[in-house]
């Protein structure tokens, strides 16, 4: 099976979506207009690289907040898996379940790996109008860190 992963590039309007953040809470991207949004797609809860990445993002959260930015993690895991993962790692930002239909939002952003059935590790910074200002696909197994996100937030016209 061929599978090309190509995250939507800068300049594209970010496709709207509604995903569950918990069993009783949904987040709609367009509801966040007016502030920058960071989308962090990652393959799976619990896998070592992802865990480091989310723990790192948790710790850098105050820096993201200085830009008024909302961080959203996204993986194909279910809300229950996310709940246990967030509790275990002390994550306080929403992690969204791209669970049903499986990987649909990841696919919309060009970052679904149809071979593995998971999202590729990729980052998007959206401006306050919901336009992608920066996107990045991390090499397999490499945690991308937060430097690219901070640089992209700094480069937004309002900051």
């Amino acid at each position: 099976m061929t599978n090309s992963i190509a995250p939507l590039p800068a300049g594209t309007t970010a496709p709207d979506f509604t995903l569950k953040a918990s069993s009783d809470k949904e987040i709609t991207l367009s509801g966040l207009r007016g502030q920058p949004v960071i989308l962090a797609f990652y393959p799976a809860d619990w896998s070592p690289t992802c865990s480091d990445q989310m723990a790192l993002f948790q710790q850098v959260l105050p820096e993201f907040e200085r830009f008024g930015a909302q961080l959203l993690g996204v993986s194909v895991d279910s809300v229950w898996c996310h709940k246990a993962f967030a509790a275990d790692r002390g994550l306080t930002f929403p992690i969204l379940a791209d669970f049903h239909p499986h990987g649909a939002v990841s696919d919309l952003y060009g970052t679904f790996n149809a071979e593995s059935g998971m999202a590729a590790r990729s980052l998007f910074v959206l401006d306050k109008d919901g336009v992608i200002a920066w996107s990045y696909l991390a090499p397999p197994g490499v945690n991308p860190g937060a430097d690219g996100i901070l640089a992209a937030l700094e480069a937004l016209p309002d900051s």
Binding site: L56, E63, P139, V142, N143, G145, A146, D147
Partner: peptide, 24 residues
Amino acid sequence: DFMSGVRSGVNGTPTFFVNERRYD
């Protein structure tokens, strides 16, 4: 130290830089 690491793309520990390039 921590923030200098974040701004340099430190993505977990340990992260090494060899002559300022991040080793992956």
